[in-house]
Design a protein around this nucleic acid. Structure first.
Lengths: 131, 131
DNA sequence: TACGTTTTACGAAGAACTTCGTACTAAGCG
DNA sequence: CGCTTAGTACGAAGTTCTTCGTAAAACGTA
């Protein structure tokens, strides 16, 4: 059973840093990930390699071995993983109260007018659905 | 230097479960925490004890040793820890975009009309401040 | 072909997390 | 006083996470 389960586990901190690179820049080799990471979280080459190997086992990334330098890409879309992480925090810390979590997020850092408008639209839709 | 630093570290999963008990029920002994935890996350007695000892070192909880059975209470208010966890996730996964995090939270689980109204009020205040 | 470079694979070490067993201590009670 | 019960302290084991060193394989080139 070397296959990754259908739902990959929650990525760890270091794994999430790597996923963000892959989401931002698309499929990349170890060296490309290493360089993209250099400013934010410097790691050694083999550290990145090892993490990507482990993430492949977990199903967090997919590997293309056609070229000598394997090319990795995120196994799930950014949106899906974000949803997973939010849902996880929701359960672990907020007892499922999404509104409390949302208000904390909004209080932490002010949003732009456009972002606020987008949230209002979402709330409007939810209010409609509730009718 | 046995003093805990001023800002305790992010609590781990098991630690957060214990903190939630303390926030919900107020100061409690090991046994009381154990029993409150029984339904959601059963642990052995010495496991809870050990966790509380470690959490005391970390400054996550405070310990009153006057009675034979020490009484523990949360070292920080629920609100503060929630803020810390949200800020942490914001940085790690959302690149600081609070609105994206908030929208994920709201999409995950529909809120009540009262909760939606509270969020709207908060957005109103932010819009005012932006003027 | 022989050599240097780049890459993968693998093992291992150290830290953190979680769990539990054992020993010691303090009360309460017959 | 001796025994049982309830508690604390401590150590250690098993797991996961992160890091890195070393070896082996693949490639390019003089």
């Amino acid at each position: 059973m070397t296959e990754a389960s259908r739902l990959p586990p929650r990525p760890t901190d270091a794994e999430l840093e790597i996923l963000r690179v892959l989401w931002d820049t698309g499929p990349a080799t170890v060296r490309e990930v290493l360089e993209a990471l250099a400013s934010r979280r410097p790691m050694g080459y083999t550290t990145v390699l090892k993490l990507l190997q482990i993430m492949t086992e977990k199903g967090l990334v997919l590997r293309n071995e056609e070229e000598r330098a394997h090319v990795y890409r995120a196994g799930r879309e950014r949106h899906e993983t974000e949803r997973q992480l939010v849902g996880d925090l929701l359960d672990r810390a907020f007892g499922g109260s999404a509104s409390r979590l949302a208000m904390h997020a909004l209080a932490t850092k002010p949003s732009s007018a456009a972002e606020i408008a987008a949230i209002r639209r979402m709330l409007d839709e939810q209010s409609e659905g509730e009718k």
